[in-house]
Nucleic acid binder design. Structure first.
Lengths: 128, 128
DNA sequence: CTGAATCCCGGCGGATACTG
DNA sequence: CAGTATCCGCCGGGATTCAG
């Protein structure tokens, strides 16, 4: 069925046993695709990177840090990140209003993954 | 060569100190975004998963394995994967024609990265 | 069998203006 | 300050047809 070389289907550890089901090639692709969808937005990665390291940023901080993004998109992407559980949103009932954004634990856990992606991409040159 | 950070959150905020230095927060986001673009196509992951483990597949194999994809998209995504250096394309000058697709070494190296992404996504359950 | 070419459509994302 | 509301262009991607 599966010829496991360094196959993704072989998950070394850490997957829930209650399902009793490892990822097949198809569900694996689907699962990764779902994960990628969470990151698919045009600005999500830039936002995430701004938030990495437990940094808490305000809306205007993000606007300043990512000048090319419009308010609409920034708000939209933040909402989606919040809905998807990567970002935590804290509203301070003040005048003027103030909203803080921070990564959830799960969002923080994405950090080493993106780092791995970074290292993978860096190895592009050596192609035969 | 690349300094292997365990944590992207430790990246410096300013510019890199020297040339061979690793990523800043900004260039890191850009680099990851570039990497994600390579995988961004609607069907690329499914194709990649079909190819993982050094499996060589023909065009018609992939069509059968991914029934939902149209010929156009399959061809398009394969071309892009080839152009981006993830997939190797071998044309056999025969009648009827036959084309084999396989991962490049670099493409294979993506496998553990997607695996990490898979494990990250699996840990979504508990959020506080 | 393996594509390229063409037509078509929904939605992402940009620009701008308005609000509490 | 931190967002909504609205309009709109572009392009990713589906269906179908043609070609080597």
């Amino acid at each position: 069925m599966t010829r496991t070389h360094e196959d993704v289907s072989r998950l070394p550890e850490g997957k829930p046993a209650d399902e009793g089901q490892a990822y097949t090639r198809e569900t694996g692709a689907v699962a990764v695709a779902q994960a990628l969808e969470l990151l698919g937005g045009r600005w999500k990665l830039e936002i995430l990177f701004q938030l990495f390291g437990g940094r808490v940023r305000r809306f205007s901080d993000l606007e300043r840090a990512i000048p090319a993004v419009s308010q609409k998109m920034l708000a939209q992407q933040l909402r989606q990140l919040e809905r998807d559980g990567l970002v935590h949103r804290v509203v301070h009932p003040q005048v003027p209003p103030r909203v803080d954004y921070a990564l959830t634990e799960w969002g923080q856990a994405l950090c080493p993954v993106l780092d791995a992606l970074l290292r993978w991409q860096a190895g592009r040159k050596v192609e035969r």
